[in-house]
Design a protein around this nucleic acid. Sequence first.
DNA 1: AAAAAAAAAGAGCGAGCGTTCTATTTATTT
DNA 2: AAATAAATAGAACGCTCGCTCTTTTTTTTT
Lengths: 237, 237
Amino acid sequence: MGASVLTYQEFRDIVEVSMEKICRAVFHENRDSIKIKKEEVAVKNLINIFNTTLELSNTMGFQAMSLRDLSRESGLSMGALYSYFTGKDELAKIIQEQGRRIIADILKEQVEKGNDPREQLQIAIRAHLFLNEVMQKWFYFSFMEARNLSREEQKRAIESELVTESMFIDILDSGIEKGLFRVGNTVLTASTVKAMLQDWYLKRWKYSRRKVTVEDYADFIINLIESFIMPKETQAG
Amino acid sequence: MGASVLTYQEFRDIVEVSMEKICRAVFHENRDSIKIKKEEVAVKNLINIFNTTLELSNTMGFQAMSLRDLSRESGLSMGALYSYFTGKDELAKIIQEQGRRIIADILKEQVEKGNDPREQLQIAIRAHLFLNEVMQKWFYFSFMEARNLSREEQKRAIESELVTESMFIDILDSGIEKGLFRVGNTVLTASTVKAMLQDWYLKRWKYSRRKVTVEDYADFIINLIESFIMPKETQAG
DNA sequence: AAAAAAAAAGAGCGAGCGTTCTATTTATTT
DNA sequence: AAATAAATAGAACGCTCGCTCTTTTTTTTT
């Protein structure tokens, strides 16, 4: 081991989550509500709209951001904006949806590459964290604005949180079963791992200021959690 | 050790943070801006106002909560409300201030009781967590609504976060110096401890649903962090 | 019981919100 | 170059917001 570890650069090359790709997906998924016909025009403006929305609402809050703010900062008129979404609420909903979709797709895909629970745990932590880095603004938005969603959408957000956590629980349980990890409270262990991962996008400013890279943080968390769940002898090998 | 550990019940008896006590402090601190003369009347209504504000804004967000909502839910008229604060922004500011004041006062006071770094770390984790439990609504509000504050108030919130974290860093450093803890990245260690503690008030619903008590959670985090920073032999004794 | 002080009530104000709709501009096709 | 389609512009509408201010009610003092 050691050489086969997923690096941040490798991750970026593999997953290719770009704003352009996301917006193209949004365009196709919402073709009936979007009033724009030509894909290139739509994608170009959607990129602008999402970037500006994330920028504004992550500093002042989505509620506090008026569509006139969004219009002014994006350079698009009110009329133009309403060609891309049916209302302010839908704009928030779309951002949330994309965040959930991407984390679900990519995390599962990456973890399945792991050959044993230890490798899977490492991949899960690294991939999750790398996604938090790439999609920082999206996840920060999703967490902070979840309260403004409809009941139905809120349920989905909670469910999404629990599904990701279950993935960690399953890895831990299978590790115990195979005698690789020592017995412990896997639910609480998974829960605290999630909390540490989440801190990366909630307190991004802190880590930036301290010049902690996402690789540093990944290594640290893996060390921390392995020292807890693995017997001393096993840990080094 | 073991018998002298701070329990949640002991903590509650010692610190006595009650809504009534907080509101009495708010009344005296803001006597010039509050238009009410009689302390008992003011305290009674402040309790009502803060409870209702925390309740409403922790579900729908402070921005989304109108003062007419607050008026309706509290049973106080618009005119009455404005006898207790000068504007909506000040209401948010007061709640933030009280949260910061209490965590700073109580945490320092408790940690100073510890005789060695290990005991101090345990006390710090337990006291911090118990405060998160008692003041859950206040802290959730403070975290979620920090963006709506003035630049100046935002600086104070960040400073407060870093001061609490420094307390953990200092404890860890002094433990290493005394040979009790193994050498490691104390800044990142403190940071992750804070993240785990914070999760208690950010995801309270999750722990309630799973019937995890605050004592369970405290014990778990202390175990987790000690297995990381303490050599195996020392840990048990 | 009357007078004075304290507290609460709630209609009214201007501003800004989300949203709509028609006019205009830009791009594409013929 | 004219005709058609696509996209953008921004004024206008109804509504709700934070906040103020005078009136009314309640409490305290005399």
